[in-house]
Design a protein around this nucleic acid. Structure first.
Lengths: 227, 227
DNA sequence: GTCTATAGCTAGATAGAC
DNA sequence: GTCTATCTAGCTATAGAC
């Protein structure tokens, strides 16, 4: 098959289409703020400095634009999280590095967290099976990488034999949700979410949570026999 | 002032308007699934068995319908979480009871978690300052209750001196996010999110996480001096 | 590759009969 | 309190000139 037929042109890496990239930038910001249904192609076009109809020369439909945005975001994160997985250190250090890389990724592009959470909530029309599958696959690799890291620690006897899915959910909640919480989160913490101090605090919080929760000393919920 | 002027008729408790309640039920389900912008009043009307225009006899606008849905949900949860706050036991037991009550509330109406998270993400037009403020206030009381509970435990020397906002965020992530994660969460855990076993597992997970993370034995992130 | 123009539809909201 | 009918405005998407 001809080169770059499967993936639209995601990993092409080249300078690519300048308009295309700008459309993706604008659309990413808007979709993160208001979701798929809440964004009109008119605002996207205005943000880019084009007319509405010109967008259809770069993306066949609004849905394809949305999926392209999602794909770019997920690939960006997945790439940034590959490094820590290949480290040659003990599981604890590796987990630390992975969590920091994840938070760094969420902070570098503040739209990421919201976009990802929103994507989870759209039980999609998913009419585009090609790009939708690509997104799902990249997401799957991301989760698999983290769980392999956990399993490694468990096998090495460094972590408790926690539930992989449950721990994954807790970590997503503590990271992705946090940086997606917007005004509410800022009201709660009494300051910006993405400032250097706030980010450092969150990193420590998550790492503390994980180290306490994964430590070999079993947490032993004080029972509560029957309920 | 005449009775029930401030709150539209939320706490009226009476049989109220049957149509109104049915509209709220249908709208709640739809808004949870697709968000404010993703729902048309036509589908709401169809779900209720009315015509679109009849909805405007019960709610002045789509926005007011949405806010009424939110208000009902938040009040429902806030009410269910009052009990544990007034328990006369030690902080640990109280925290256990609170977490269980929260999860019970999220499970009893499976739309709750998604609705609440979605509400956080809409950085709202908020044109309706009356009902919007009511929602914010109920939410504030809820958070304040939880944080008072935490503070109580810290003052009693049972919990570490954790950051109240950070811990709040982690708990929301571990509970509300989890039960809002839908298909993704089910794919991850390999089963339903709301089954009795799945719920029991999540309760244990969150309680373990909290007891380990709040325990007096300082978790002591293995340093990582400068970064 | 961007434009103007427009098709075809649905959205939220209103008017007024019953 | 529900209906039919209708308004205006917005939407996604297409056609075709330049």
């Amino acid at each position: 098959m001809p080169p770059s037929t499967r993936l639209p042109r995601a990993a092409a890496t080249g300078p690519g289409d300048a308009s295309r990239d700008k459309i993706l930038d604008v659309a990413e910001a808007l979709f993160a703020r208001r979701g798929f249904a809440g964004v009109g192609l008119q605002e996207v076009a205005e943000g880019v400095g084009l007319r509405k109809s010109s967008l259809f020369h770069h993306f066949k439909s609004k849905m394809q634009l949305y999926l392209a945005v999602l794909q770019r975001v997920i690939c960006r994160v997945a790439t940034q999280l590959e490094g820590p997985l290949n480290l040659d250190t003990d599981p604890t250090e590796k987990l630390n590095a992975w969590v920091e890389a994840l938070i760094d990724a969420l902070v570098e592009h503040p739209t990421t967290a919201r976009l990802c959470l929103r994507a989870l909530f759209e039980d999609g029309p998913e009419e585009d099976h090609q790009a939708g599958a690509d997104v799902d696959e990249a997401l799957g690799r991301l989760v698999a990488g983290f769980q392999a890291l956990l399993q490694e620690g468990i096998d090495a006897g460094v972590f408790r034999a926690v539930s992989l899915p449950d721990t994954t959910q807790s970590v997503i909640g503590a990271t992705v949700y946090h940086f997606a919480s917007g005004e509410f989160g800022e009201l709660l913490t009494g300051g910006p979410l993405f400032s250097a101090e706030a980010v450092a605090r969150r990193k420590r919080e998550v790492k503390d949570l994980l180290h306490a929760g994964l430590g070999r000393a079993t947490p032993s919920t004080p029972s509560e026999p029957g309920e």
